[in-house]
Structures are given as structure tokens and as C-alpha cells.
Amino acid sequence: MTALPLRPGHSGRPRPQRLREMSGRAGWGIVAWVVAIAFFLPVLWMVITAFKPESAAETWPPQFIFKPTLSEFRLVFSGMGPFLTHSVVATVGSTILVVLLSVPAAYALSVHPVKHWRDGLFFFISTKMLPIVAAIGPLYVIALHLHLLDSIWLLIILYTAMNLPLAIWMIRSFMLEVPRELLEAARLDGAGRIREITGVILPIISPGLVSTALICVIFAWNELFLALNLTVTNAATMPMYLISSVPQEGLYIAHLSAAATIASVPVILVGWIAQRSLVRGLSMGAIK
């Protein structure tokens, strides 16, 4: 019953199998790091260029050592105000609307499904397959008649429609993972439908909800086509500010990089921080 001591040398000396394993692991690690850095390089280069003075940005060979300056960032910040506001309002507004609409809809397609839930879900997904670009002319005319052209409301409405199908699909997948016994137990405890959603389902799927909202935020924040076609000044968003930062002549690469960095950074940071949630949303939510 007394613990037998391990034979000396057996645990101390690394064994050939271990060595092979460790070197194999290191090999894969190096490959992965090289690939990842190469993949990340454009982003890195964008940020580096943003800190250059304009004169150092367009040189051959490209300069890697320079005196960093914030002057381009200052310039970008100075004109950014209204664009930023529009982007935030359109992104946040549409995301809230998406969540409000998609939670009940996902519920009706999963927990207590309507009779033709399959058709319903297919319909939502199929609207995603109709290219919005095909209707851009008439959309313009409709917006014109409804006096919604160049209005932030128009973007909120359209971004909501753009993200709704994916949100319903994802939230539905998360709801399917809620254990049935839990819902039945809530039923037996006298919970109605509303209580079932707010008291049982929402707390369980809240991580999924976060990742869904996150993906909606990414797509809404980054959207250019609709904004470019349907807004001018009153609702112009960050991507449009980015375009406007490209002048017709003169040196502009550092300025452009600074603007691109600032426009991208909010979503990149949110994405990095909420990475697990994002991964889950994109993958698990999308398929299971």
C-alpha cells in the first residue's frame, strides 16, 4: 500500500517519444506563427503607416524606421464627428431592432415551432440570397418618396433587414440548445410563454445573444454600399468618411491609413475582446 517510488531516471529523463512530440509541436507552432504574421501584415502595415508623416509614407524603399507622429490622426479626428455619430446610431439602432425582432421569431421557429417552421426559416434565409444591389435603383426612388433619403432612419431600417435573417438563424440555433427538461420544468412551475423566454431562455442564451449582436454590429458598422447610394451628408457613415479622405491629388497615404485605422479599430477591438463569443457565434451558432 505504500507508494512505490518511481524508478530513478524514468520520470526525469525526457523520453524519445516526448522529444519527438515536443519538436513536432514546436514545428507546427512556427508554421502557424509565420502564417498568422503574414496574414496580419496588411493590418500592421496600415497602423504603422498611420503613424508616419506623409513624406515618409510614399517612399521607395518603404521606411520602417521613422519618427512617429500623431498629426494625421489629429487631422482625421477633426473632421470625423458627424460621420462617427451616424455610424454609431445606425449600428446600435439597427442591432437593437434586430435583437428585438429576432428573439421572438427564433422562439417561434424553435422552442414551440409554428407548423411550417422550416419554410419560415428558409424564407428568412432566402431574403439574404436576393442581392440587395439588384433593387438599389427602386430603393432610391422609394426612399425619395418617403422622404427618407439621406436619413439615418433609412440606414437603421435597411441594416435591420440586412442582419435579421442571420440573427434569427443564429439565435434559433442557440435556443435549440436549451435543454427541453428545463423548459418543461418551467412549464410545470407555472411559467407562461413570456416568462419562459425572459426567465429561462434568455439567461441561458445570453452569450449567444451577445455574439449574434456582435456580428450584426460588425456588418452594420462596415456597410458601404447602401450608405454610399442612399446618403449624402445627413447620414453619411464612417466608411464614407474613409472614402472622402482619399483626395484626388497630393500625398495622402498616411492620412488614408490613419482614417482606415480609426474606422476599423472599434470593431477590431470589440472583436478581439469578445473573441470567444464571436467564434462561438460564427461557428457553433451557425451550425448546431
Partner: peptide, 17 residues
């Protein structure tokens, strides 16, 4: 599962690694 000590043999052949 790798061994951290000792060995296993199958039919007189040391299969530890």
C-alpha cells in the same frame, strides 16, 4: 497514453515507443 516510466511489452517486443 505515453509512459513516464517503465515499459510495456506485447509478445516479447518492447512497444513503449
Amino acid at each position: 497514453e505515453p509512459l513516464d516510466g517503465g515499459s510495456v511489452e506485447i509478445g516479447d517486443r518492447d512497444v513503449t515507443f
